[in-house]
Computed example of a mutant assay.
Amino acid sequence: MHVLRRLRMHCGLYGRRDPVLLSPVLLTLVIGLLAVFTPQDVPFTRLLPAAPALAASVWSVRATLTLGVVCLLPVIGFALAFSDMSALYTAGAIGAVTLAAAYASHLRLQREHTLAQVRAVADATQEVLLRPVPRRIRNLEIATLYLAAAPQARVGGDFYAAADTAHGLRLILGDVRGKGLPAVGVSAAVLGSFHEAAYDAPDLGRLARRLDTSLARYNVDVPAPDGSERFATAVIVEIPPTGTQVSVLSCGHPPAVLVHRNTTRSIEAAAPSPPINLAELVGSEYHVQRIPFAPGDLLLLYTDGVTETRDDQGVFFPLTAWTRATDTTSPPAVLELLHQALLRHSNGRLTDDIACVAIRNTPRQEPW
Protein backbone atom coordinates (compact mmCIF):
# COMPACT_ATOMS: atom_id res chain seq x y z
CA MET A 1 0.00 0.00 0.00
CA HIS A 2 2.90 2.34 0.78
CA VAL A 3 4.30 1.77 -2.73
CA LEU A 4 0.91 2.46 -4.34
CA ARG A 5 0.58 5.62 -2.27
CA ARG A 6 3.96 6.83 -3.51
CA LEU A 7 2.93 6.03 -7.07
CA ARG A 8 -0.18 8.13 -6.68
CA MET A 9 1.93 11.00 -5.32
CA HIS A 10 4.38 10.78 -8.23
CA CYS A 11 1.55 10.93 -10.74
CA GLY A 12 -0.39 13.68 -8.99
CA LEU A 13 -3.42 11.44 -8.57
CA TYR A 14 -4.49 12.59 -5.12
CA GLY A 15 -7.71 14.54 -5.34
CA ARG A 16 -8.27 13.31 -8.89
CA ARG A 17 -10.60 10.50 -9.91
CA ASP A 18 -9.78 10.20 -13.57
CA PRO A 19 -9.88 6.44 -14.31
CA VAL A 20 -7.45 6.89 -17.19
CA LEU A 21 -4.74 8.11 -14.81
CA LEU A 22 -5.40 5.20 -12.47
CA SER A 23 -5.48 2.56 -15.20
CA PRO A 24 -1.78 1.48 -14.91
CA VAL A 25 -2.20 0.85 -11.17
CA LEU A 26 -5.47 -1.00 -11.71
CA LEU A 27 -3.93 -3.12 -14.46
CA THR A 28 -0.99 -4.00 -12.19
CA LEU A 29 -3.34 -5.01 -9.36
CA VAL A 30 -5.52 -7.15 -11.63
CA ILE A 31 -2.52 -9.01 -13.11
CA GLY A 32 -0.97 -9.44 -9.65
CA LEU A 33 -4.17 -10.88 -8.19
CA LEU A 34 -4.57 -13.24 -11.12
CA ALA A 35 -0.97 -14.42 -10.69
CA VAL A 36 -1.50 -15.08 -6.97
CA PHE A 37 -4.89 -16.80 -7.11
CA THR A 38 -4.45 -18.93 -10.23
CA PRO A 39 -2.37 -22.09 -10.71
CA GLN A 40 1.36 -21.60 -11.19
CA ASP A 41 1.25 -23.20 -14.64
CA VAL A 42 -0.87 -20.24 -15.84
CA PRO A 43 1.82 -17.50 -16.08
CA PHE A 44 -0.22 -14.31 -15.75
CA THR A 45 2.98 -12.49 -14.69
CA ARG A 46 3.97 -12.41 -18.36
CA LEU A 47 1.34 -9.72 -18.79
CA LEU A 48 3.06 -7.34 -16.35
CA PRO A 49 5.11 -5.51 -19.04
CA ALA A 50 1.79 -4.07 -20.24
CA ALA A 51 1.51 -1.97 -17.05
CA PRO A 52 4.59 0.30 -17.56
CA ALA A 53 3.79 0.43 -21.29
CA LEU A 54 0.36 1.82 -20.43
CA ALA A 55 1.84 4.19 -17.82
CA ALA A 56 4.03 5.82 -20.49
CA SER A 57 0.94 7.27 -22.15
CA VAL A 58 -0.38 9.05 -19.03
CA TRP A 59 2.39 9.26 -16.40
CA SER A 60 5.72 11.00 -15.96
CA VAL A 61 9.06 9.32 -16.59
CA ARG A 62 9.72 8.89 -12.87
CA ALA A 63 6.31 7.37 -12.18
CA THR A 64 6.67 4.99 -15.16
CA LEU A 65 10.06 3.78 -13.89
CA THR A 66 8.65 3.36 -10.39
CA LEU A 67 5.79 1.22 -11.63
CA GLY A 68 8.23 -0.86 -13.66
CA VAL A 69 10.32 -1.50 -10.54
CA VAL A 70 7.17 -2.40 -8.59
CA CYS A 71 6.34 -4.99 -11.24
CA LEU A 72 9.92 -6.19 -11.58
CA LEU A 73 10.95 -6.88 -7.97
CA PRO A 74 8.29 -9.50 -7.07
CA VAL A 75 8.99 -11.38 -10.30
CA ILE A 76 12.76 -11.44 -9.59
CA GLY A 77 12.09 -12.55 -6.01
CA PHE A 78 9.86 -15.37 -7.22
CA ALA A 79 12.42 -16.46 -9.82
CA LEU A 80 15.23 -16.61 -7.24
CA ALA A 81 13.12 -18.34 -4.60
CA PHE A 82 11.84 -21.09 -6.90
CA SER A 83 14.70 -21.16 -9.47
CA ASP A 84 12.17 -20.42 -12.20
CA MET A 85 14.00 -19.47 -15.41
CA SER A 86 10.77 -18.47 -17.18
CA ALA A 87 10.18 -15.92 -14.42
CA LEU A 88 13.66 -14.48 -15.08
CA TYR A 89 12.76 -14.09 -18.75
CA THR A 90 9.58 -12.30 -17.67
CA ALA A 91 11.65 -10.02 -15.43
CA GLY A 92 13.93 -9.20 -18.37
CA ALA A 93 10.91 -8.34 -20.49
CA ILE A 94 9.53 -6.10 -17.75
CA GLY A 95 12.88 -4.29 -17.46
CA ALA A 96 13.22 -3.76 -21.20
CA VAL A 97 9.64 -2.56 -21.63
CA THR A 98 10.01 -0.23 -18.63
CA LEU A 99 13.07 1.46 -20.09
CA ALA A 100 11.37 1.86 -23.47
CA ALA A 101 8.22 3.13 -21.78
CA ALA A 102 10.21 5.69 -19.77
CA TYR A 103 11.76 7.02 -22.98
CA ALA A 104 8.33 7.14 -24.64
CA SER A 105 7.00 9.06 -21.64
CA HIS A 106 9.89 11.53 -21.99
CA LEU A 107 9.06 12.11 -25.67
CA ARG A 108 5.35 12.52 -24.87
CA LEU A 109 6.06 15.12 -22.20
CA GLN A 110 8.30 17.04 -24.58
CA ARG A 111 5.52 17.13 -27.18
CA GLU A 112 2.97 18.18 -24.56
CA HIS A 113 5.25 21.01 -23.46
CA THR A 114 5.69 22.15 -27.07
CA LEU A 115 1.93 21.96 -27.65
CA ALA A 116 1.29 24.00 -24.50
CA GLN A 117 3.67 26.70 -25.77
CA VAL A 118 1.98 26.73 -29.18
CA ARG A 119 -1.43 27.06 -27.53
CA ALA A 120 -0.15 29.91 -25.37
CA VAL A 121 1.09 31.72 -28.49
CA ALA A 122 -2.24 31.08 -30.22
CA ASP A 123 -4.14 32.43 -27.21
CA ALA A 124 -1.98 35.55 -27.18
CA THR A 125 -2.52 35.95 -30.93
CA GLN A 126 -6.27 35.69 -30.50
CA GLU A 127 -6.21 38.33 -27.75
CA VAL A 128 -4.27 40.66 -30.03
CA LEU A 129 -6.55 40.06 -33.02
CA LEU A 130 -9.90 39.77 -31.25
CA ARG A 131 -9.57 42.42 -28.58
CA PRO A 132 -12.12 42.02 -25.80
CA VAL A 133 -15.31 43.91 -26.57
CA PRO A 134 -16.82 45.76 -23.58
CA ARG A 135 -20.01 44.16 -22.31
CA ARG A 136 -21.66 47.54 -22.11
CA ILE A 137 -21.16 50.92 -23.78
CA ARG A 138 -23.62 53.57 -22.66
CA ASN A 139 -27.09 52.09 -23.24
CA LEU A 140 -25.80 49.24 -25.43
CA GLU A 141 -25.36 45.71 -24.09
CA ILE A 142 -22.91 43.65 -26.16
CA ALA A 143 -21.92 39.99 -26.29
CA THR A 144 -19.58 38.07 -28.61
CA LEU A 145 -19.17 34.44 -29.65
CA TYR A 146 -16.27 32.79 -31.45
CA LEU A 147 -16.26 29.10 -32.36
CA ALA A 148 -13.43 27.44 -34.23
CA ALA A 149 -14.30 24.51 -36.48
CA ALA A 150 -11.14 22.67 -35.38
CA PRO A 151 -11.44 21.71 -31.68
CA GLN A 152 -7.85 22.77 -30.87
CA ALA A 153 -7.86 25.95 -32.96
CA ARG A 154 -7.61 29.34 -31.29
CA VAL A 155 -7.62 31.70 -34.27
CA GLY A 156 -9.09 31.63 -37.74
CA GLY A 157 -10.37 33.70 -40.62
CA ASP A 158 -13.44 35.12 -38.87
CA PHE A 159 -13.03 38.39 -36.99
CA TYR A 160 -14.84 41.15 -35.11
CA ALA A 161 -13.90 44.41 -33.41
CA ALA A 162 -15.53 47.40 -31.75
CA ALA A 163 -14.48 51.03 -31.31
CA ASP A 164 -16.24 53.64 -29.16
CA THR A 165 -15.70 56.77 -31.24
CA ALA A 166 -16.99 60.34 -31.39
CA HIS A 167 -19.38 59.14 -34.11
CA GLY A 168 -20.76 56.48 -31.78
CA LEU A 169 -20.08 52.78 -31.39
CA ARG A 170 -18.60 51.30 -34.56
CA LEU A 171 -18.40 47.55 -34.99
CA ILE A 172 -17.08 45.30 -37.71
CA LEU A 173 -17.62 41.58 -38.16
CA GLY A 174 -16.30 39.67 -41.14
CA ASP A 175 -15.00 36.53 -42.76
CA VAL A 176 -11.76 36.20 -44.72
CA ARG A 177 -11.58 34.06 -47.84
CA GLY A 178 -9.56 30.95 -47.03
CA LYS A 179 -8.47 29.22 -43.85
CA GLY A 180 -5.38 28.65 -41.74
CA LEU A 181 -2.49 31.00 -41.05
CA PRO A 182 -2.85 32.98 -44.32
CA ALA A 183 -6.42 33.85 -43.31
CA VAL A 184 -5.17 34.99 -39.90
CA GLY A 185 -2.76 37.39 -41.60
CA VAL A 186 -5.56 38.91 -43.66
CA SER A 187 -7.74 39.23 -40.54
CA ALA A 188 -4.90 41.04 -38.77
CA ALA A 189 -4.53 43.47 -41.70
CA VAL A 190 -8.26 44.29 -41.72
CA LEU A 191 -8.55 44.63 -37.95
CA GLY A 192 -5.42 46.78 -37.69
CA SER A 193 -6.83 49.16 -40.29
CA PHE A 194 -10.23 49.22 -38.58
CA HIS A 195 -8.82 50.09 -35.16
CA GLU A 196 -7.03 53.07 -36.73
CA ALA A 197 -9.63 54.30 -39.21
CA ALA A 198 -12.74 53.82 -37.09
CA TYR A 199 -11.95 56.91 -35.01
CA ASP A 200 -11.39 59.44 -37.79
CA ALA A 201 -13.33 58.22 -40.84
CA PRO A 202 -16.31 60.60 -41.15
CA ASP A 203 -18.73 57.92 -42.35
CA LEU A 204 -18.97 54.18 -42.93
CA GLY A 205 -18.36 54.48 -46.66
CA ARG A 206 -14.99 56.14 -46.16
CA LEU A 207 -14.18 53.67 -43.40
CA ALA A 208 -14.81 50.81 -45.84
CA ARG A 209 -12.54 52.47 -48.42
CA ARG A 210 -9.76 52.71 -45.84
CA LEU A 211 -10.13 49.00 -45.12
CA ASP A 212 -10.10 48.22 -48.84
CA THR A 213 -6.91 50.23 -49.36
CA SER A 214 -5.16 48.59 -46.42
CA LEU A 215 -6.01 45.08 -47.56
CA ALA A 216 -4.93 45.88 -51.12
CA ARG A 217 -1.55 47.01 -49.79
CA TYR A 218 -1.27 43.87 -47.69
CA ASN A 219 -1.97 41.79 -50.80
CA VAL A 220 0.92 43.49 -52.58
CA ASP A 221 3.33 43.19 -49.65
CA VAL A 222 2.39 39.58 -48.79
CA PRO A 223 1.26 37.87 -52.01
CA ALA A 224 -0.82 34.72 -51.68
CA PRO A 225 1.20 31.55 -52.44
CA ASP A 226 -1.27 30.54 -55.14
CA GLY A 227 -1.43 34.04 -56.63
CA SER A 228 -5.11 34.47 -55.78
CA GLU A 229 -6.64 37.74 -54.66
CA ARG A 230 -7.38 37.89 -50.95
CA PHE A 231 -10.60 39.53 -49.84
CA ALA A 232 -13.00 39.60 -46.92
CA THR A 233 -16.72 40.04 -46.53
CA ALA A 234 -17.77 42.23 -43.63
CA VAL A 235 -20.64 44.11 -42.05
CA ILE A 236 -19.86 47.48 -40.47
CA VAL A 237 -22.27 49.04 -38.01
CA GLU A 238 -22.46 52.51 -36.48
CA ILE A 239 -24.71 53.24 -33.51
CA PRO A 240 -24.70 56.97 -32.58
CA PRO A 241 -24.51 58.02 -28.92
CA THR A 242 -28.04 59.37 -29.13
CA GLY A 243 -30.94 58.55 -31.40
CA THR A 244 -32.87 55.45 -32.30
CA GLN A 245 -31.28 54.50 -35.61
CA VAL A 246 -28.37 52.29 -36.59
CA SER A 247 -26.31 52.55 -39.79
CA VAL A 248 -25.40 49.27 -41.47
CA LEU A 249 -22.95 48.76 -44.36
CA SER A 250 -22.75 45.21 -45.72
CA CYS A 251 -19.67 44.52 -47.82
CA GLY A 252 -20.85 41.32 -49.47
CA HIS A 253 -21.67 39.83 -46.07
CA PRO A 254 -24.72 37.82 -44.89
CA PRO A 255 -27.48 40.15 -43.71
CA ALA A 256 -27.73 41.11 -40.05
CA VAL A 257 -30.82 40.05 -38.10
CA LEU A 258 -32.86 42.69 -36.29
CA VAL A 259 -35.35 41.91 -33.54
CA HIS A 260 -37.54 45.02 -33.46
CA ARG A 261 -40.39 44.85 -30.97
CA ASN A 262 -42.36 41.74 -31.96
CA THR A 263 -40.83 41.29 -35.42
CA THR A 264 -37.66 39.59 -36.62
CA ARG A 265 -36.20 40.30 -40.05
CA SER A 266 -32.99 40.09 -42.01
CA ILE A 267 -31.46 43.43 -43.00
CA GLU A 268 -31.01 42.74 -46.69
CA ALA A 269 -28.84 45.30 -48.50
CA ALA A 270 -30.92 47.58 -50.71
CA ALA A 271 -27.94 47.88 -53.07
CA PRO A 272 -24.78 45.72 -53.16
CA SER A 273 -21.48 46.97 -51.75
CA PRO A 274 -18.17 45.31 -52.69
CA PRO A 275 -16.29 42.98 -50.35
CA ILE A 276 -13.11 44.41 -48.89
CA ASN A 277 -10.32 44.47 -51.51
CA LEU A 278 -12.69 43.90 -54.44
CA ALA A 279 -13.76 47.52 -54.95
CA GLU A 280 -11.64 47.88 -58.09
CA LEU A 281 -13.17 44.76 -59.62
CA VAL A 282 -16.87 45.18 -58.81
CA GLY A 283 -17.15 48.91 -58.17
CA SER A 284 -16.41 51.21 -55.26
CA GLU A 285 -19.90 52.40 -54.37
CA TYR A 286 -20.82 51.78 -50.74
CA HIS A 287 -24.45 51.89 -49.68
CA VAL A 288 -25.32 52.54 -46.05
CA GLN A 289 -28.74 51.62 -44.66
CA ARG A 290 -30.32 53.29 -41.67
CA ILE A 291 -32.78 51.22 -39.72
CA PRO A 292 -34.71 51.84 -36.50
CA PHE A 293 -33.04 50.66 -33.32
CA ALA A 294 -35.37 51.43 -30.45
CA PRO A 295 -34.87 50.54 -26.78
CA GLY A 296 -35.29 46.80 -26.38
CA ASP A 297 -34.22 45.99 -29.97
CA LEU A 298 -31.54 43.39 -30.68
CA LEU A 299 -29.12 43.38 -33.61
CA LEU A 300 -27.35 40.09 -34.41
CA LEU A 301 -24.24 40.06 -36.62
CA TYR A 302 -22.79 36.72 -37.72
CA THR A 303 -20.50 35.03 -40.24
CA ASP A 304 -21.68 32.51 -42.81
CA GLY A 305 -20.53 29.64 -40.61
CA VAL A 306 -23.86 30.07 -38.77
CA THR A 307 -26.26 29.90 -41.71
CA GLU A 308 -24.17 27.28 -43.53
CA THR A 309 -24.23 24.85 -40.62
CA ARG A 310 -25.96 21.70 -41.91
CA ASP A 311 -27.75 18.80 -40.28
CA ASP A 312 -27.45 15.15 -41.35
CA GLN A 313 -29.83 15.75 -44.26
CA GLY A 314 -27.87 18.77 -45.49
CA VAL A 315 -30.45 21.32 -44.31
CA PHE A 316 -28.98 24.73 -43.42
CA PHE A 317 -29.52 26.22 -39.97
CA PRO A 318 -32.62 28.49 -40.08
CA LEU A 319 -31.21 31.48 -38.23
CA THR A 320 -34.05 33.94 -38.78
CA ALA A 321 -36.72 31.41 -37.79
CA TRP A 322 -34.68 30.36 -34.78
CA THR A 323 -34.25 34.00 -33.67
CA ARG A 324 -37.98 34.58 -34.08
CA ALA A 325 -38.72 31.61 -31.79
CA THR A 326 -36.21 32.67 -29.12
CA ASP A 327 -37.94 34.29 -26.14
CA THR A 328 -35.02 36.44 -24.94
CA THR A 329 -33.22 39.51 -26.25
CA SER A 330 -30.36 39.40 -23.73
CA PRO A 331 -27.18 39.27 -25.88
CA PRO A 332 -25.27 36.75 -23.70
CA ALA A 333 -28.31 34.50 -23.43
CA VAL A 334 -29.05 34.69 -27.16
CA LEU A 335 -25.49 33.71 -28.10
CA GLU A 336 -25.39 30.90 -25.56
CA LEU A 337 -28.68 29.50 -26.89
CA LEU A 338 -27.42 29.94 -30.46
CA HIS A 339 -24.25 28.00 -29.64
CA GLN A 340 -26.31 25.12 -28.25
CA ALA A 341 -28.70 25.20 -31.20
CA LEU A 342 -25.83 25.03 -33.72
CA LEU A 343 -24.29 22.06 -31.94
CA ARG A 344 -27.64 20.26 -31.89
CA HIS A 345 -28.35 21.04 -35.53
CA SER A 346 -24.93 19.75 -36.67
CA ASN A 347 -24.74 16.88 -34.15
CA GLY A 348 -21.66 18.58 -32.71
CA ARG A 349 -19.82 18.71 -36.06
CA LEU A 350 -19.13 22.34 -36.90
CA THR A 351 -17.31 22.54 -40.22
CA ASP A 352 -16.55 26.27 -40.37
CA ASP A 353 -15.40 29.01 -38.03
CA ILE A 354 -18.19 31.04 -36.49
CA ALA A 355 -18.19 34.59 -35.13
CA CYS A 356 -21.21 36.45 -33.76
CA VAL A 357 -21.84 39.81 -32.11
CA ALA A 358 -25.17 40.64 -30.47
CA ILE A 359 -26.05 44.24 -29.51
CA ARG A 360 -29.12 45.28 -27.56
CA ASN A 361 -30.42 48.80 -27.08
CA THR A 362 -31.42 48.51 -23.45
CA PRO A 363 -34.31 50.54 -22.04
CA ARG A 364 -32.92 53.38 -19.99
CA GLN A 365 -35.01 52.50 -16.96
CA GLU A 366 -33.20 49.16 -16.52
CA PRO A 367 -30.83 49.18 -13.52
CA TRP A 368 -27.22 48.28 -14.25
Rank of each mutant, 00 (worst) to 15 (best):
H2A: 11
R5C: 06
L7H: 11
H10R: 14
L13C: 12
D18W: 06
P19M: 04
P19I: 04
V20D: 00
L21G: 15
L22V: 04
S23K: 07
L26P: 00
T28G: 13
T28F: 13
Q40S: 08
Q40A: 15
V42W: 12
P43W: 08
L54G: 05
V58G: 03
L65F: 06
T66N: 01
G68N: 11
D84H: 12
M85V: 14
G92N: 07
G95P: 01
G95R: 04
L99T: 14
A104Q: 11
S105L: 07
Q110P: 00
E112H: 11
D123K: 13
A124V: 14
V128G: 06
L129F: 07
L130Y: 03
L130C: 10
L130V: 14
P134V: 08
P134G: 10
R138N: 13
N139Q: 11
N139H: 15
E141V: 13
A143Q: 05
T144W: 01
L147D: 00
V155Q: 03
A163K: 04
D164Q: 02
T165G: 09
R170H: 12
L171S: 02
D175C: 12
V176R: 05
R177K: 14
V184D: 05
G185V: 03
F194M: 04
Y199I: 06
L207F: 13
L215A: 13
V220W: 02
P225H: 12
E229H: 11
A232M: 06
V237C: 09
E238I: 04
S247L: 03
G252E: 00
H260G: 04
A270G: 13
P274Q: 02
A279I: 02
L281Y: 08
S284H: 05
A294E: 11
A294D: 12
L298S: 03
L300D: 03
L301W: 06
T303F: 07
D304K: 09
G305D: 02
T307W: 01
T307H: 03
T309W: 00
P318W: 06
A321Y: 01
L337H: 14
A341L: 02
R344E: 14
H345T: 08
H345V: 05
T351V: 07
D353H: 09
V357M: 13
I359A: 01
T362C: 09
T362E: 10
P363M: 03
R364Y: 01
